[in-house]
């Protein structure tokens, strides 16, 4: 087991653990920190999966921008703990959510298991390490040629989102 693989499995475990913690922790701020940890773990996993650009973007966009937004929101909303529900109600909701999550997971694993042989057969190249090195240029070329239209649509989407946020954040004129 090489270093990469060791890293991968370690951080995979950490990612899953932090994901679970986000769901089960009671404090919003703690949830935010755990979520950052989860995102960074994923960045490591991306790096191990020979996707360095995605890993870097993950750190910049999620670990940076998105988290800053969350922290700001927490500061503004000032609601670290919500009022508690009746325990019976809470238990019922937890049970239902758990059942739903487990059902989904079971189903996904079942599908995965069923299709694993087909996947193995389809394997064209054994995970080539070459993909990782210097694929930034190739990715960029792809984005600006084959995926130009989605790329531009995404740009428009971002502009629209920015304008929409401005409009919403602005206090009403008549106030």
């Amino acid at each position: 087991m090489g270093l990469t693989q060791a890293l991968f499995f370690t951080f995979a475990a950490l990612a899953l653990a932090s994901a679970l913690s986000v769901v089960f922790t009671r404090h919003t701020v703690w949830a935010a920190y755990l979520f950052v940890a989860h995102l960074l773990c994923l960045a490591v996993l991306y790096a191990c999966l020979s996707a360095p650009l995605v890993a870097v973007l993950q750190v910049m966009v999620y670990g940076g921008a998105v988290m800053v937004l969350f922290i700001f929101a927490i500061m503004i909303l000032d609601a670290s703990v919500l009022g508690r529900l009746d325990w019976r109600q809470e238990a019922l909701q937890a049970g239902l959510s758990l059942a739903l999550g487990l059902g989904l997971a079971g189903l996904l694993f079942y599908v995965l298991d069923r299709h694993a042989p087909a996947l193995a057969l389809a394997n064209p190249v054994s995970a080539s390490a070459d993909l990782g090195r210097g694929n930034v240029a190739a990715l960029g070329r792809m984005l600006y040629t084959q995926y130009l239209l989605p790329f531009e649509v995404i740009s428009v989407l971002l502009v629209v989102a920015a304008v929409g946020i401005l409009v919403m954040a602005k206090r009403k004129l008549e106030d």
Binding site: L107, Y110, V111, R114
Partner: peptide, 18 residues
């Protein structure tokens, strides 16, 4: 949201042939 996820689960189950 729960109903939505339930729907996803059901559709997935259907696609999986369950």
């Amino acid at each position: 949201l729960g109903a939505f996820v339930l729907g996803v689960v059901l559709i997935l189950a259907m696609l999986a042939g369950l």
